[in-house]
Design a protein around this nucleic acid. Structure first.
Lengths: 210, 210
DNA sequence: ACCTGAACACCGTTCAAGT
DNA sequence: ACCTGAACACCGTTCAAGT
């Protein structure tokens, strides 16, 4: 005899996010999620394969939302400001997100293990805006390398920051500003790639030397 | 009546490293360590406050060793090659270490939580060589910011690589080369700071704009 | 079809009891 | 002084039994 469902996958994912945000990843136990949605722990396995699966679902959701956020930010003033300024804005937005939601951020950009990593599609989506900017900035041939350089730097910087790894004094905000300024300049300085007309350059003067 | 010690802190840390290297962090349980050193799990608490404490001890040891390794590398040809080349060499050495010992690497540069992070002294030691190079490259005023930029980029890149985050195709080795080349050039290009005579520049022309 | 209690195998950790 | 078995509180997960 069928009984009505007392919860849903969305409920469970949302409950998980709430617990993650308020108490951190170790507190995200099946027991805690079950309590919050008003069900016993074993029932969760009707909607979710495992705890890692749940964590991955949360990570994917958050990554997708962050992507939307960055997309909105970039498309809002994409026409008015130039690529270097957009890149800086993007870098600050990601850092602001990490400050606001450190545990969610870590789930996306500092995944504990393979099984909890957000789905590739969500990651790709969250990097979309950056890729458009680096295409404009460094040209189509170098766009991917440039995006990877920026992503690596930003996630590395913020990850170290969240981990409390900057212990030699100095102004951390200033160090972030230093990094994005130098990076933006370095990525734009491809010979033969004017920073605002990348789409019109000759594809045969590829300067990447390595 | 005193009984002779059947193990030691060094034994325990070494056993932990072995387990970490062969089976990963989740396999590094007190039980597994105890089995390996030939003792029962509760006995470990005579030498170690907790599992996290043990993980931290391992992380500290590894960070210190990596520092020694990088120190040797840089001081070996510090006089002969220029700063940009040394920086590139350093970046490749760190990446090689991450490939050889991914779990040990993660313990240092992608710490799971605060309580397992290597001791500050060990981290500082491991970054020493880099700081000397960026001093030469970017000048004393920007040395710390420059070192942070490089560290952030390298740890971010390698962390993403180990997490399998580069999913858009392209040559990853090439992307790493791209990054370090651009970074080295960007950090050296401080107005008024010739890349090989940073120690002799006028400290009052500090160009950092932010 | 969904939910539950009971159970299992595993954690880290404590502690009184042994030598 | 060190080691141990037993125990505790917690995990994630499975499953037969209920409705």
């Amino acid at each position: 005899m069928p009984t009505p469902a007392r919860t849903s996958l969305d409920d469970i994912v949302q409950a998980g996010r709430d617990i993650l945000a308020s108490d951190g990843l170790p507190a995200l136990t099946m027991q805690a999620v079950a309590d919050r949605v008003g069900v016993r722990a074993p029932s969760l396995y009707k909607r979710v394969r495992s705890r890692d699966d749940l964590v991955r679902l949360i990570a994917t959701t958050v990554a997708h939302e962050l992507g939307d956020q960055l997309e909105a930010l970039v498309s809002r003033d994409g026409a008015t400001s130039e690529a270097q300024a957009q890149l800086t804005e993007l870098a600050h937005a990601v850092r602001a997100f990490a400050y606001a939601c450190p545990d969610e951020y870590r789930l996306i950009f500092a995944p504990t293990c393979e099984t909890t990593r957000p789905e590739p599609e969500a990651l790709t989506h969250s990097v979309g805006p950056l890729l458009r900017i680096t295409t404009e900035l460094a040209g189509p041939d170098s766009a991917l390398d440039a995006a990877r350089t920026v992503t690596a730097w930003a996630t590395g910087f913020i990850g170290m920051e969240l981990a409390g790894a900057f212990r030699l004094g100095g102004d951390i905000d200033r160090a972030y500003e230093f990094g994005i300024t130098r990076l933006a300049a370095a990525l734009a300085s491809v010979p033969g790639t004017p920073s605002n007309q990348a789409m019109h350059r000759d594809p045969h003067d590829g300067p990447d030397h390595d």
